[in-house]
């Protein structure tokens, strides 16, 4: 069944043991930016159950094509051409339609186009490193990009981020708001990264590793990685206010 009727119930409680805790000294910046007191539970009121929903008129024609959306006409970004595709689901396994998904990343050499970035790898004049899309009626999304490179960062003396793409996702309720990162199958750097290791559960980490999908690849053009994103599910409406739509 498609998840198209507006839903009005609260979300499942968030499993805080599955997410990284706020204080993770291996990731040094978290030390002074982590609340130390207990969160106060606020079971969903209208203010959390509702959330902004974005129309397709939000998007420009090339927002989901990082290979060309910052490039000079006729040129394209340097690097391994890939497509990232998947579904935005909720914890009940239902597709989330109309979810705005934003993504950003370093270029093929591991360099971000940002004034505070100082890594010696060169900028690619044809790569901006950001895009966005909105999921279809079944929760599907896809975009084209180049595979980002790993990069060093100031934490330990020799810490490197694995190749990754940052994701920001809007579902249907403000309490579903999520920022996370996607990693690539087979990358040994994943298991060395202090930011990855803020996540306590290895199964949770694996859920952020995109799988190479040769069936979805386009011969002589690009390879595909599949990355599903799961947002919080909503509680049942069955015995709350109506029988339909459960």
């Amino acid at each position: 069944m498609k998840n198209t009727l507006p839903e009005t119930t609260p979300f499942f409680a968030r499993d805080r043991d599955w997410h990284p805790p706020a204080y993770t000294p291996g990731y040094k910046t978290s030390v002074l930016r982590s609340p130390q007191r207990a969160l106060i539970s606020l079971e969903g009121t209208k203010s959390e159950i509702t959330g902004p929903v974005f129309g397709h008129n939000t998007l420009g024609e090339f927002d989901n094509d990082l290979i060309i959306n910052f490039a000079q006409p006729g040129e394209s970004a340097i690097g391994e051409r890939i497509m990232v595709y998947g579904r935005v689901l909720d914890e009940r396994g239902r597709g989330v339609p109309g979810a705005l998904v934003e993504f950003w990343q370093a270029n093929a050499g591991g360099r971000y186009r940002h004034k505070k970035e100082s890594y010696l790898a060169p900028l690619d004049p044809n790569f901006g490193g950001f895009g966005r899309t909105i999921t279809d009626d079944d929760g599907n999304y896809a975009f084209r990009t180049i595979k980002p490179g790993p990069y060093p960062w100031p934490n330990g003396v020799n810490d490197w981020r694995p190749a990754h793409i940052h994701f920001s996702v809007f579902g249907h309720g403000f309490a579903q708001r999520l920022i996370t990162q996607m990693y690539f199958e087979g990358d040994p750097m994943i298991w060395l990264c202090p930011i990855v290791k803020t996540i306590p559960d290895e199964a949770a980490i694996r859920s952020l590793v995109a799988a190479l999908d040769m069936n979805a690849s386009i011969p002589h053009d690009l390879r595909a990685y599949k990355f599903d994103i799961v947002l919080r599910g909503r509680r049942s409406t069955l015995f709350e206010n109506r029988l339909e739509g459960n």
Binding site: H166, L178, Q181, I195, I199, S207, V230, L231
Partner: peptide, 23 residues
Amino acid sequence: YLKESPSQTAGPYVHIGCTPNFA
């Protein structure tokens, strides 16, 4: 049930993705 995708920090370059004109 599926598990929610675990959160990761927005990092230092969140502006590139969320407010590129500002960046």
